[in-house]
């Protein structure tokens, strides 16, 4: 069921930019793969070459042995695609959109109701897509991509425009899909999303892949210190400095923060002093990795 993907040396250059500049990776069957990167990094362009919307100027893509730009129906039937900007038939209702996309994949009519239910659109089924809110449109667009129960799913920023509930619900849907052995590839700006969902993440910038690994390995590789905060007054500044393993101590309005590369030693020591009021521990996140790799400058 799961489908493997190989991208090898993909290049797509426009007049003045190399939007994708030699991107290679493989996605194993059943893997949940994330493409992360700032605006203009080349995520969409990479995804479009993999989906078969663009033929790479050089390099090659194989999905389960097929070259996607040849648009073979056998492959396309197994692929579900949600493009970055939702595209619908004009003046059709949500239900009619699902019916129409379903018919393109020769899906039985009952699927429409399942999808409306799954994506919380039952109340909006008879509203024209022009009248849906941004997030509702986004949900419908994903529902249209999944209506034929594809083996491999490509989602370009699926959670953009979604509220927290919808975002978590979509995560559940995607996890379920992936747990049943299907391959999922998505792009996102949200680090928590990539950390929560992806087996492996490729961090892209300026058309290249900078790092590619599991989220945990990426964070570990950063070797960033852990920040331990306590309620103010729990410990005096001097006492805190004396804690074994503490690299740095800062007393703020709302918290006393100890920075350390050896959190277990610091925590043991704090426990022995019975100084755990308002304790919170914050490790490095994928966001830190991301900012470390791509810098803080705005992207084109």
């Amino acid at each position: 069921m799961g489908v493997g993907i190989t991208a090898d040396g993909l290049v797509m250059a426009y007049d003045d930019v190399r939007a994708v500049d030699g991107v290679s990776f493989t996605v194993a069957p059943g893997e949940f793969f994330g493409l992360l990167g700032p605006n203009g990094a080349g995520k969409t362009t990479t995804l479009e070459m993999i989906e078969g919307l663009r033929k790479p100027q050089s390099g090659s893509v194989r999905i389960d042995g097929h070259e996607p730009w040849r648009r073979e129906p056998e492959l396309q039937r197994r692929m579900g695609v949600q493009l970055q900007s939702s595209s619908f038939f004009d003046r059709l209702t949500a239900r009619e959109q699902l019916d129409t996309f379903g018919a393109l994949y020769r899906v039985a009519a009952g699927r429409t109701d399942e999808m409306l239910e799954q994506f919380g659109l039952v109340d909006k089924a008879d509203l024209r897509t022009e009248d849906l809110s941004g997030g509702q449109k986004q949900r419908l667009s994903i529902a249209c991509a999944l209506i034929h129960d594809p083996d491999v799913v490509f989602l370009d920023e699926p959670t953009a425009a979604l509220d927290p509930q919808a975002r978590r619900n979509l995560w559940d849907v995607l996890r379920t899909i992936n747990d049943s052995g299907r391959t999922v590839v998505l792009t996102t700006h949200y680090m928590d999303e990539a950390e929560a969902l992806c087996d492996r993440v490729a961090i892209m910038d300026a058309g290249r892949i900078l790092e590619l690994d599991t989220p945990a390995a990426l964070v570990r590789g950063l070797d960033a210190p852990v920040r331990i905060s306590l309620a103010p007054g729990t410990l005096s500044l001097e006492d805190a400095r004396a804690v074994a393993g503490a690299d740095e101590v800062a007393a703020g309005e709302s918290a006393l923060t100890i920075t350390t590369r050896d959190p277990s030693r610091v925590l043991t020591e704090l426990a022995s002093r019975d100084a755990l009021d308002g304790l919170s521990v914050k490790g490095a996140s994928l966001e830190d990795v991301f900012l470390e790799l791509t810098g803080r400058e705005y992207r084109a």
Partner: peptide
């Protein structure tokens, strides 16, 4: 024009038709 601009043409291009 409308279908090209709203991306539906591209979306249909990826459907097995």
């Amino acid at each position: 024009v409308v279908w090209r601009r709203n991306g539906l043409l591209r979306r249909l291009r990826l459907a097995p038709i």
